[in-house]
Structure formats: structure tokens, C-alpha cells
Amino acid sequence: MGETRKISLSVNGKTYEEEVEVRFTLADFLRQQPGLTGTHLGCEHGVCGACTILLNGRSARSCLMLAVQVDGQEITTIEGIAPSEDEMHPLQEAFRDNHGLQCGFCTPGMLTTLIEFLGDNPDPTEQEVREAISGNLCRCTGYQGIVAAALDAAQRLREAKGA
């Protein structure tokens, strides 16, 4: 084992104190140490977006960060999006209703990216949604179901807020 460091961070609201190898990427750390395998590795060079997580609420590619860099910070992964174990987030519901996923491998990055985006832009156009997910590759859906899901989720979130 190479050089290690002790880090403390919050993942999905839970605090972890772990010894990590300094060369471990954040993605590998999340998948192997807390065992949160919902964050996927599709390219490990920062293009496919499958490993996108939320770092202090901002989307980031976890293959392009070292685990040691997130000491003291807050991470949200796909496992932490739903409000409870038996309830999905409106975005997750919208993905299911609009066939926004097929194999589901790009889905974690799509969800985390869109959660940030819909926070920035609660009433987006179709083109804005397409640009928002331009850094997330999907090989199954042709993006149509994902775009529809994002627009549907935006509406659900607006209605929930208005209600």
C-alpha cells in the first residue's frame, strides 16, 4: 500500500472516517470503502459522466478527484437522492415514467447532474436540458426519455414547491 491519509467526510448525510490511499480516486473510494457502488465508472477520463456525484451540492466527476481532496466535505451519491427508503425523488419517478433509463449504467450521473441543474434552472427548455446533460453519455436511450424525464421532473418539482 502506498501513502495513505485519514479523511473524514459526509456521504449522503452519514459521516465516514477512513484511511485512504492518496492516489485513490474519489470514485474508487466511494465504491470500495463505503461500498456505494451506485456511482459508476464508464471512462475514467472525465468524458462519460457516469461517475458524477454532488460535492457540496455541485456536480463533479468523481473519477477526476482524489478521495483525499474531499476531507471535511459533503458528498451526495445516487444512493442518497431519494427522500426515504420507500419513496423516490420526483426526478427518479420521472425517469421511470418516461423510460429515462434502459441499462441504467449512466443513470447515476444523469440524476446527480440534473438535480443540480434543476436547482439552477427550475423551468428549463428542452434545449437547456440537452445542454445540461451534454457531459453525460448514454448509449441506450438516444436521450429522448431522459430529456422528457427532466422536463417532467421540473414540472413536478415546481408544482410541489407551489403547493
Binding site: L36, T37, T39, H40, R96, H99, G104, P108
Partner: peptide, 20 residues
């Protein structure tokens, strides 16, 4: 609605690299 979706949408899918 697809039966495959709930697990995949919540990070509970089990792909080969997820097997530890």
C-alpha cells in the same frame, strides 16, 4: 412501468464491477 427501474434508479443495481 419497468420492473428493472427501481433498483437502477436508487443505486442498488448490481453490475459486475459492483461485486465485492
Amino acid at each position: 412501468k419497468r420492473l428493472e427501474d427501481p433498483a437502477l434508479l436508487t443505486g442498488q443495481g448490481r453490475f459486475v464491477d459492483d461485486i465485492i
